[in-house]
Amino acid sequence: MKHKFTKYLGRVTENLELDFEEKWIYVHYTIGSSEKTACLLKNENKSEIEYLDSFFEENKVSEEMQNEVKKFLINEKNRNETHWNEFTTFLMKTLSLNMVFGIAIALSVYGGFRLGSFLDNRFELYPTFTLIGTFLGIGIGGLTVYSMVQKYFKSPKQEERKNKDPLRMDLTDNKNHPIIDVSIEEVRKAVRSFSDNLPKGVFRTILVQEDNSIDFKQLAPLLGGIPSKKFYMSKETYDLFEDGEKQIPIEMDIVQKAVDLYVKEQKEYPMLKFDPQRRVNYYQLLQEHYLKAAPETQFYITDLDGLITHIKPQKKNSSLS
């Protein structure tokens, strides 16, 4: 089988063509206007690379070309060994399971036949139940063999897909990073640093999982490991919370969306006009169906473009008119 290799060395093109036979290696080499051809006899117990080394040295083949050819030959050798191992494994499975398949089918057919015969003798309908039982046994035996084949004879691609399962990869990734103790302030700094390096149009919410917990596999390089405890983030305000406050970001996202929609449609904040603490008025949001239920946490409207917070204001602020 022929294999061609090409390298571009500035303005000069280097080509190498190899054809491997059982006892011969055909080599055709060109570089610029120079051309060399050789037939290497494989009469010694040497590898193909060792046979080619003398040709490479004699004709001053470039180091880049030599490396590419050697890499190709090593990969071919590994591939052949893999195929042989797969074949021998398949053969061993076939030989060992062949008897099991036969027994499974035989027992299924025999069981169906005996059950059918028993029913025919009891109800005097021979050979109705005998035939039904026999065919049923054949079907059950076939299904049994099929399920065993699916379980024990998996193709390399199936094994590869199994090895690339996201959950397995996640667990493997976690093992690459140590478990560390971090403060919420350290997490906040890591999130900001991560966000600063994101492409335009991509937001830090890619760190937030379905339950509002932070995916620390992406932050591990910045933190130096995976935190020993969970932290949570609001997708709407980006506020961070520890494990004891994990319900707050979920409610915060719901309320923030309701407040934003209310302001967009009503042109005012959902709060009492003379409330110095600027508490979100859940009654207004419930009445206008912006909320389905009142959250347990009391939120407050800040001066930052209508963002809400769960922290009670320390100073009294005048309401927006």
Rank of each mutant, 00 (worst) to 15 (best):
Y282Q: 00
E251W: 09
Q247G: 08
T297R: 06
E160N: 07
I250V: 15
M252A: 09
F135G: 01
V69T: 00
M1D: 07
I254C: 04
K42S: 09
T172H: 08
K23V: 14
E245R: 10
P199Y: 12
I206L: 10
T6D: 01
N15E: 06
L136C: 07
S234W: 03
V69N: 00
T37W: 07
S183E: 10
E64N: 06
N45G: 04
I301F: 01
G244A: 14
L9Q: 14
Y262N: 03
Y300I: 10
Y26C: 02
L9T: 11
N174V: 09
P178Y: 08
M92N: 14
D303N: 14
Y300C: 02
N212A: 10
V191T: 08
I248Q: 03
T302H: 00
P227H: 04
S147R: 09
I31S: 01
V145S: 07
G225K: 01
E245T: 04
E50G: 01
G244V: 13
E159F: 10
K257M: 07
S213P: 06
D120F: 03
I226Q: 01
L320E: 14
K189D: 09
A293E: 15
D170I: 12
R122D: 06
D19Y: 03
R279M: 06
M148P: 11
M92D: 13
V69K: 00
F56N: 03
S195I: 04
T130R: 05
K264S: 13
K175T: 15
L223S: 01
H28Y: 11
R79T: 02
E64S: 13
R279H: 05
I184T: 03
M233N: 01
P166N: 10
H3E: 03
K7Y: 10
H83Q: 12
Y152E: 12
D165M: 04
S54P: 07
